[in-house]
Design a protein around this nucleic acid. Sequence first.
RNA 1: CCGGAGGUGGCAGAGUGGCCAAUUGCAUCAGACUGUAAAUCUGACGGGAUUUCCCUACGAAGGUUCGAAUCCUUCCCUCCGGA
Length: 408
Amino acid sequence: MSNFKVVATEGKARAGVLKTAHGEVQTPVFMPVGTQGTVKALDPEDLRNCGTQIILGNTYHLYLRPGNKLIKKMGGLHQFMGWEGPILTDSGGFQAFSLGAMIEHGVKKIGRSENNRDESLARGPLVSKITEEGVQFVSHLDGSKHLLTPEKSMEIQLDLGSDICLVLDELLSPLHGPEYVKQSLERTHRWEIRSEEYFRKGVRTEGERGIGPQLFGILQGVFDKEVRVQEARWVTGQDFAGISIGGSFGTEADWAAAKAIDQTISWVVPLLPVSLPRHALGIGEVRDLFACIERGIDMFDCVAPMRRARNGSLYIGPKNGGKVSNKYTLSISRAEFTADPRPVDPGCSCYTCQNFSKAYLRHLYLAKELLYYRLATIHNVFFIVNLVKSIREAIIDHQFELLKKKWV
RNA sequence: CCGGAGGUGGCAGAGUGGCCAAUUGCAUCAGACUGUAAAUCUGACGGGAUUUCCCUACGAAGGUUCGAAUCCUUCCCUCCGGA
C-alpha cells in the first residue's frame, strides 16, 4: 500500500496526494530548500503564507551544526524550527558532489562541460572524498573530519524526524568517464541497499503510530540513455516509497542543458511505477517545472528561488515580460526601477507584491537592508510554489496544455 | 586679510617624474545562479579603431624636462584655524 495516490492526469502529467506523518501533500509540489533548519530569510508563518506545503532539510549541514542529537533532544526538526508541515531531508549525497567533484571538475550538475567550466567553483581544496564505506568530509565549518556512511545518513535523518528520507548516493559529475560512472553507480546501489536496511530497522523502533517516515530511493546517472534506463530499472526493483531523480544533466550550457533534463526525464519516467511519487532533485526553474511535470514528475526542490531572491533576481510572469530567455526574472537592482511605484509582478498576489514597489525593493536591495531578503524571498517562493499549484489545478481541469502555452 | 591643507575619471579616494587611460570602493551596465561552503560570483566601465593603435584626459593657463597627474610660476576655487 502506497502513501501516494494519483487523482488526475493529463497526458503524462499527473496530480496526486502524498500522505506523510505531518499531513498530506498535494502534488505536483515545489519544496523550498531549508538547508540549515530554515528557509533562508523566512519563518514558518511566511512559508505557510507563501503556500508552502513541504520543505527540504539537509542531513550534512544539520549533522555538523547544531548536531542531529541536539535536534533530536529538542524534539526533532519540526519542533526545533517551528514548522509543522512535512519535511523531506536530503541525505548528504549532494555535498559529496558539491564539496568534491564539483570543485575538482569546475562543473555543476547541469550544463557544464569540459569547454564550459566555471573556475570560480574551485574555491579551495576538495573537502569530500568517496570511499566504499561512505563519504569522507572535511567540515567546511572547522576542518574536522567526518565519515558519512549510508547508515549514518539514515540515523541522522531519523534523528531529525524527517518525513521523507533519501538514501545516500553519489551525485555523478557530467565529466565523469564511463568507467567511473559504472563503478560509482554500483557503489551507489550498495549504498542505497544499506540505507534501506538501516532505515527499516530504525523505523521499526522509532514509533508506530500512523504513517512513519518513508524512504525514497535515488535514480542516479549521467546524460546517457543506456545508463538512465538501467538505473530506472534498478530503482524500480527496490522497495522504496518514492523515487528521486538525481545525477547530472548534460554537458552543454543553457538551452541544450534544459533539453537534457527533458530528455532524461523522458527516458526514465515511463519505466517507473505509476504508484510511486517521482521527485526531480534540485530542479525548479520555471521552464523546467513545466517540462518535468509534463513528463510525469510530481515533486521538486530547488535552491534557485531563494538564492535568486537574495541575489536580486525576482520572478515575473509572462504577462509582465517573463520568458524563457530571461528565466522569468528581472534584476531589481536596475536603475530603471529607481522610481517605479509598481510591484515586481502586478499579477502576483504575494505579500510583497501586495504591499511594496519595485522602487522600495530596489532601495532595500542596494542598501543591503535585511528586510529585502525576506520580501524578495517571499515573492520568489510564493511565485514558484503557486506556479506549481496552478499547474496542479490545471491538470485536474485538463487545462495543462493551455496553461503551458501561456507560459512557455 | 594672514596662516595651514587641498583641487584626480558619476561619487569617494589612491597615486607624487617614465611600468598611468590612471589602484581601490561605491554607483552604473551586462552575465551567472537548478538535491545551498552563495545576502554570492564573473565581466565591462573616457572616446574611437578593435592582436602590441590613435585621440582627449588628473581645476585653468604657461613653463622645466627626452618624458609630468606627479616639479616650477601665475590665476581660479574649496576646506580648516586666526584676525
